[in-house]
Write a protein that binds this DNA or RNA. Structure first.
Lengths: 347, 347
DNA sequence: ATGAAAGCGCTAACAC
DNA sequence: GTGTTAGCGCTTTCAT
C-alpha cells in the first residue's frame, strides 16, 4: 500500500494485469508490431479496463522528441495572434505534436521567463513573436537553447533564425499610393507604439510613398485610446495643412480614429479618406465600411509552424550541412477596398 | 562520446562541473536552502555557464504535481474563449503553473483525443468547455481521469464537477423585458446552433419573458450566415405579425442581422429595436450603436481557474471529506444600453 | 514473439 | 552541509 493514491495506471500495472512483460505492452501502445494477435487483445483489454494512458514525461525522459512545440506571443486575446495560434496548432496536430501557447504582454521579463518554462518542458522547437526582438538577453537565451526557432510577425535580426512576416513595407506603400490615387494630397499616418518592427516597416512604406509623390509627411505615433485619437485629430484639423486622407497603422488606431471622425461629424471618404492596416470582422459592417490592408493571418501561423517542423525533420543530419542561409518568408497582403477610401459609391 | 548531441545540460553535469553532488544542485535549483553560500555561488556559476534548465519531465516523473493545467475550448480564435484563456493563464501563472490550451472545433472526437493528450501530459487539472457536455463517452473519460475538473460556459450535468457559467437565463429574460419596456409587442428571437447549453438557456429566458408578458414567441434558430439571416428577416417582415423588436442570441447572429437590416434600409431602434447577446469591440462604433448583454468573459476564465486551483490545493486531504456538493458558480451579466434598443437618443 | 534489465534526469530518504 | 542511492514510468538493446 505504498502506492501514491490518485495516480493513473502505469505501464507495468498493465503488464501485470495482462500477464505479460513491460516490453510487450510498450510494443502494443507503440503500434503493436511483433505482437501476436492474442497477446495484443489481452493487453488492449487490460489497457482499456485500467484506463491507461502512457505517461508523456516518462517517454520524454527517454530522450527523444517531446512532440511539443512552443508558441510565444504578446497576447492570446489579440485576434491577430490567436488566429496565428489556431493555425499553428492545426499544423502541430497534423505533425502529432502539442502546441503550448504562452503570452507575454509584450514584456521582456515575461518573455525570458516563458522561454525558460518552455525550455524546461523541452519543447522540440519554438515559434516566437518577440516583444523587443533585438534584446541581447533574449537572443542569448534563444541561442543557448540550441533548438529550431522560427520568428513570426517580428524578425529577430541578430540571430540566425528564419522568420515569417507579412510584407508590411510594400503593403503600406501601396496602401498610401492607393490614397494618392484617390487624389489625396495630405495624408496623415496615425499609430500607437512605434517601436514594433511591423509598425516601423509600415511607417517606412508610408514615407516611401509620400516622398515619391512629393507629399508632406504627417506622422502621429501617440494614439493609444479614444482620447488621444481625439486630441490628435483635432490638432491635425486645426493645422495649416489639414489632412484629406488618413492611414492608420493598426487595428485599434483605425477604430479609435473612426469613432472620433464619427463623433466630430467628419464624413468619409470626403472630406477624409480612411484606410487602415489590418482587417477586422466589422470593418465591412460599419458605415461607411472601412477599407483595409489585410494580412494573411492564418498563413503566418501555418507557415511558421510548417517551417519549424521542416527544420525539426531535417535537423538530425545537420552536422554536415553548411550554415543554412537565413530564410525570411515574406507573405503578401491584400488591399480590401470598401467605402472609406472612396472606392465604392458612398452608399 | 556517447552523449546525445544537441541535448541540454543535465543536473549531474552541473554537479560535476561544480564539483558537488547532485543533491546539492537539486537543493540550489529548489530554493538553495541548506547550502553554504560558497557552494551556492559555485553551483550557480556552473548552472549559468552550462545554460542549465531543469528538465520538467524528470521532475514530473518523480510523481509530484506537474504544475500544468489544461484548458479545452472549441476555438482559440474565438474572442470569447481566447479571453477566457488569457484570464485563466494569468491565474495559472500566479499559481506557478503552465496552462495548456487545446481547441476542439466543437467536435467530440477531437475533444476525446485532446483529453487523452492532456491526460498523457498528466496535467494536474482540467478546465473544459465541452462541445456536447452530455455525451456519455466524454463523461466516462473525464471521470476516469480522477483529477479536478471545472466546466466553463457549459456545465456537465451528469458529472460531479463544478461549473462556472454566466447567468444566461436571467440575462436573456431581463434583456427581453427591457425590449418590452420599450413598448415592443412582437419580439423575435434569432440564433444559430440551438443545441448549445448557453443558447438554450437564453431561449428559455426569452420564452419566460414573452410568456409572462403575453407576447407571441417568434423563434428562429437557423441563422448561420448573412444569407440565412437575410431570408429569415425577409420572411419575418412578410408575416402576419412583423416584429418590432429583435433579440439575437449570439455575436455572429447579431452582426448578420445588423448587416441585413442595414442593407434593407430598416432603421433601428424604429421600426426595429435590436438587442444582442454578447458584447463586441465595435458594438459601440457601428451606427446605430448596438445594445447588448455583456458577459463577464474575463471573470469566467479567472474564476474557473481559481476554482480549479482551490480543488487542487485541498485535494490532498480528501479521503476524509464527504462528497462535496457540486458547485455551480453563476456570474451575473450586464445590460449595456446603446442606441439600437431605443435607450439613447437616436443621434 | 516475448521478457529482463539498464538507464533517461531528477528528488528525497538516509547516511555522514 | 553535503553526498549516495533508489526509484519515478517508460523505451530499448539483447537474450531467449
Amino acid at each position: 500500500m505504498k502506492r501514491k493514491k490518485n495516480t493513473l495506471a502505469t505501464l507495468s500495472q498493465v503488464a501485470r494485469a495482462a500477464g505479460v512483460g513491460t516490453t510487450t505492452v510498450s510494443r502494443v501502445i507503440n503500434g503493436g508490431d511483433r505482437v501476436s494477435p492474442e497477446t495484443l487483445a489481452k493487453v488492449n483489454r487490460a489497457i482499456e479496463s485500467l484506463g491507461y494512458t502512457p505517461n508523456h514525461a516518462a517517454r520524454v525522459l527517454k530522450g527523444d522528441r517531446t512532440k511539443t512545440i512552443g508558441l510565444i506571443i504578446p497576447s492570446i486575446a489579440d485576434p491577430f495572434f490567436s488566429s496565428c495560434a489556431e493555425a499553428a496548432q492545426a499544423v502541430a496536430r497534423a505533425n502529432d505534436s502539442l502546441l503550448i501557447v504562452v503570452s507575454t504582454g509584450n514584456d521582456l521579463k515575461n518573455e525570458l521567463e516563458n522561454v525558460n518554462v518552455l525550455a524546461g518542458h523541452r519543447v522540440d522547437g519554438l515559434i516566437i513573436a518577440a516583444a523587443n526582438s533585438q534584446r541581447q538577453s533574449l537572443c542569448r537565451l534563444l541561442q543557448s537553447l540550441r533548438m529550431p526557432i522560427v520568428a513570426i510577425d517580428r524578425p529577430i535580426l541578430n540571430l540566425n533564425v528564419p522568420s515569417v512576416v507579412a510584407n508590411n513595407f510594400l503593403a503600406a506603400r501601396s496602401a498610401v499610393r492607393h490614397l494618392i490615387g484617390h487624389g489625396r494630397k495630405n495624408i496623415g499616418c496615425l499609430t500607437g507604439e512605434s517601436e514594433l518592427f511591423t509598425i516601423q516597416e509600415r511607417i517606412r512604406g508610408y514615407r516611401a510613398a509620400t516622398k515619391q509623390a512629393g507629399l508632406r509627411c504627417i506622422l502621429e505615433a501617440s494614439i493609444h485610446d479614444y482620447d488621444s485619437a481625439f486630441r490628435c485629430i483635432e490638432r491635425l484639423f486645426q493645422s495649416k495643412y489639414p489632412p484629406d486622407g488618413l492611414f492608420t497603422l493598426k487595428n485599434s488606431t483605425t477604430i479609435f480614429v473612426f469613432e472620433v471622425l464619427q463623433k466630430l461629424g467628419i464624413r468619409m471618404p470626403d472630406p477624409i479618406a480612411l484606410l487602415g492596416f489590418d482587417d477586422f470582422e466589422l470593418a465591412s459592417t460599419v458605415r461607411p465600411s472601412i477599407s483595409v490592408v489585410r494580412q494573411p493571418v492564418q498563413d503566418l501561423g501555418r507557415v511558421a509552424a510548417e517551417l519549424l517542423f521542416e527544420q525539426l525533420f531535417k535537423s538530425e543530419p545537420r552536422e554536415g550541412a553548411g550554415r543554412q542561409t537565413i530564410r525570411t518568408l515574406t507573405l503578401e497582403t491584400e488591399l480590401i477596398c470598401r467605402r472609406s477610401c472612396g472606392c465604392l459609391p458612398s452608399d
